[in-house]
Design a protein around this nucleic acid. Structure first.
Lengths: 232, 232
DNA sequence: ACCTGAACACCGTTCAAGT
DNA sequence: ACCTGAACACCGTTCAAGT
């Protein structure tokens, strides 16, 4: 329960000639900071997935002793929270000054959200289980404001937001986990072919292969928006 | 790589007077079987969540030595696969003989699917990450067949199925994880209230509380079906 | 204020062995 | 064919201590 540093603070010049970033020099590392911990955690998560993030390995990669992390961070859960939200920052649509195209703005934000999560395939499945960080709250606030301005009533607002949330989360988790396991997917389709008399329809359409995920995502999103918001 | 039993086989009479089912009698347990393992695994998952299932505890609860499980099962992953699919069985709509109401049939199956997963809150988040078992494949086959009969062309079929899948998965995972942590949710809304100048819109609509999840689910589903399938 | 190594509790799984 | 205990490798975290 002792006080701990919260925000990121000191930016230091990077001019000194250290070994290339991919090297694990056992010395001459900059001191630990929340910033460095989160950056490195994201790298490890990208490389090894949710189950592949180990506190010891993370400390090792940062060039510090195994237990030094625990001064900056309460526990592993918090590392997940920070890494997750760090990946969800949104900078807004291209030219944003009170755009008239609310639908375009919504689609831009949601497609960017999905793309950010697909760049870090561990993130989507983590998001529903963790506390909502500032970046994801910022996205929800922006979404609310845009839909509200587009004419969605307060009574319908929460339904609209959660429908879109559900759709984006489901689509991204599914897409990411199918991406993770190409072999598994092929094996599954293979196994399915062996049982083609039990599952003739999905076997015929090759449901588990050859899908236009991006197109399908956009199409379903259009249908939802058609229903959720009044046509202008 | 030695041969192992696959299907469930011997049904044995249960007439002998043993201790009541909730007792952990150290002896007089029936022998291990895939069936018993899966049933007990589901119980433990319901009680303690995904992270709360331990192989030792599972064996203990079954009244057998810690390592006996590994004769019936390859590893913990397989326990997850079996428990997951066991929870997804579908018995079909009420009176099913070639129903004319394809839309009602689809909605019935999807709402039943969602309800089954909500009864076992660990299941939804597991489903996208694991291999597809026979029960979930059966649901997808039925969905394909119904939509196909309703006039969805082969070219549009996969898009339709995945859109619905994404929506159901996203909605259920989100709902289940919010259910799991009532306190956390209240705390989150509380924290949000403290930052109301940063997130005024979602604060005002109390996005994180008081939601009609069932109604929202049904509404979004209707919108999707409107878009995906031709009006009759 | 910041970092560290030793140690603890826990957990999945291998293995050689029992019946 | 089916079950078992001992043992291994691994991992998050506590603690008492260093600078």
């Amino acid at each position: 329960m002792t006080a701990k540093p919260k925000g990121a603070r000191n930016k230091r010049s990077q001019g000194t000639d250290v070994s290339p970033a991919s090297e694990k020099g056992p010395n001459s590392e900059p001191p630990l900071s929340l910033e460095r911990i989160v950056t490195t955690a994201v790298e490890l998560l990208d490389a090894h997935g949710v189950d592949g993030l180990k506190m010891r390995q993370l400390a090792d990669r940062l060039g510090s002793g195994a237990m030094s992390l625990y001064w900056h961070v309460d526990n592993k859960e918090q590392v997940f929270d920070l890494a997750l939200d760090s990946v969800l920052k949104y900078c807004g649509p291209p030219q944003s000054v009170q755009s008239q195209d609310w639908r375009g703005d919504v689609i831009h934000m949601l497609e960017d959200w999905r793309a950010s999560m697909l760049r870090h395939p561990w993130s989507a499945s983590l998001l529903p289980r963790r506390a909502l960080g500032p970046n994801i709250l910022g996205r929800l606030e922006l979404l609310s404001k845009t839909l509200s301005r587009a004419g969605v009533t307060d009574a319908d607002l929460n339904v609209a937001i959660w429908s879109l949330w559900n759709y984006v989360i489901g689509a991204t988790i599914t897409r990411a986990s199918f991406d993770l396991s190409d072999d598994d997917r092929a094996a599954a389709q293979q196994r399915l072919t062996g049982l083609s008399e039990q599952y003739p329809t999905i076997e015929r359409s090759r449901l588990l292969m050859d899908n236009d995920w991006d197109g399908a995502f956009r199409k379903g999103l259009d249908f939802l928006l058609d229903g959720l918001a009044p046509k202008q």
